[in-house]
Simulated assay, not measured.
Amino acid sequence: MTEPGAARPSKGPLVYRQSIWTRVTHWVWAICLFFLLLSGLQIFNAHPALYIGQQSGFEFDNAVLRIGAVNTPDGPRGQTTVFGKTFDTTGVLGMSGSAEQPSFVGFPGAVTIPSFRDLATGRVVHFFFGWVFVGALFVWFLASFINGHLRRDILPRGQDITGLPKDVADHARFRFHHTRHYSPLQKLSYFGIFFILFPLIILTGLTMSPGMDAAWPWLLDLFGGRQTARTIHFGVMVLLVLFFIIHIVMVLLAGPLNELRSMITGWYRTSPGTLREEGDKP
């Protein structure tokens, strides 16, 4: 027992927070999403436009995003149109590279795999890591269901909903509580990733496959056509990239060494007194 007025320990105890299944699948997803993003941009460059509806064509324009290059009195310029609003994106989208050797592609080669125009290779890379991603997700769901990680740390409870405003305010003030269990904001974020964004990006990806459409024609009805599925697929990709950026920022702010140790060894340093507050034994 600690006497009243005695100094509290500067460090909390180490707890085993992440199972081997969570750690392995976490890093497999990180690798897969990297290659999926860059190869996906290579595939997108084959036709850098997105549509809403069952079809696209020259007789009408239902594009919600279009990236390309146009001729101007000052020479060619990169141009991006989003919901009818046009922006000059020279040097980034539509037209990149040097003035002597410009590259007229949607996304520059620096962010595509391969870095040059090669749709066939981009598709091979994309499909390979796509199936690895799906396999890792299946393994994670099965392991998390068996070891209780899914019920304990991912599925939100009533107390997580009520505690969300305070947790959001604490994160906004960079006040992080290092505990054995995920915070309400973490739970709801991971729930959205695993039960909304991941299924959406997989199903919309399958919807763009003619073979899958023949086997599962209900996919086209579910997403309103192949073109709409492609747009949703792209939008989910943008949301996942934003989540990744925020995730990395939070890791750096919360203590990168502790967070990395948790995802490499499974052991996590908690804040002093948190185990007692949670009712766990140190």
Rank of each mutant, 00 (worst) to 15 (best):
G205F: 10
G158C: 10
M1P: 12
F234S: 13
S271R: 05
Q79R: 05
G255M: 12
P48A: 06
I67E: 10
V82P: 06
P184F: 11
T89G: 04
S183V: 12
S96W: 02
H177M: 12
F44P: 04
V125A: 08
G130W: 06
P13L: 00
Q186H: 08
L37G: 10
G75K: 13
V168N: 00
S56T: 14
F87R: 07
E277I: 12
F138R: 00
K166T: 13
Q101W: 11
A172E: 03
L275W: 10
S189E: 07
G135E: 06
G192I: 00
A6P: 04
F234M: 11
L37T: 13
I245W: 03
V15M: 05
V249F: 13
V70D: 01
F127H: 15
T112D: 05
I264A: 14
F35C: 00
F243E: 04
F116H: 15
P76E: 04
A172L: 14
W29L: 13
F243H: 00
L36F: 09
T228W: 09
F107H: 03
K187C: 01
R175N: 05
P9R: 07
E3F: 05
H181E: 13
T86P: 03
L14C: 01
D74N: 09
L220W: 02
M250I: 14
Q54L: 14
P4V: 00
F128T: 15
P9H: 09
V238G: 01
L240C: 02
R276C: 05
F83A: 09
L41F: 08
N71W: 13
V249L: 03
G135Y: 07
L50W: 06
D221L: 09
T90V: 11
H178M: 06
T207N: 09
P73A: 04
Q54D: 10
P9A: 09
Q42S: 02
A49Y: 11
G57N: 12
F35I: 12
K281S: 10
L252R: 01
P156R: 02
V82R: 01
Q42I: 02
P156N: 02
G94P: 07
F194V: 15
K166N: 14
E259A: 14
C32W: 01
A49G: 06
P210L: 00
A69Q: 09
P9S: 09
L260H: 02
L219D: 06
R180S: 10
P199D: 07
I67M: 14
F223H: 10
I245V: 11
D170T: 12
I154M: 07
F145H: 03
M237H: 04
D280E: 15
Q18T: 12
H177D: 15
R117Q: 11
V236P: 06
D213T: 03
F141A: 09
W21F: 05
E259P: 10
P184C: 00
P199M: 01
P184N: 04
W140V: 05
L38T: 12
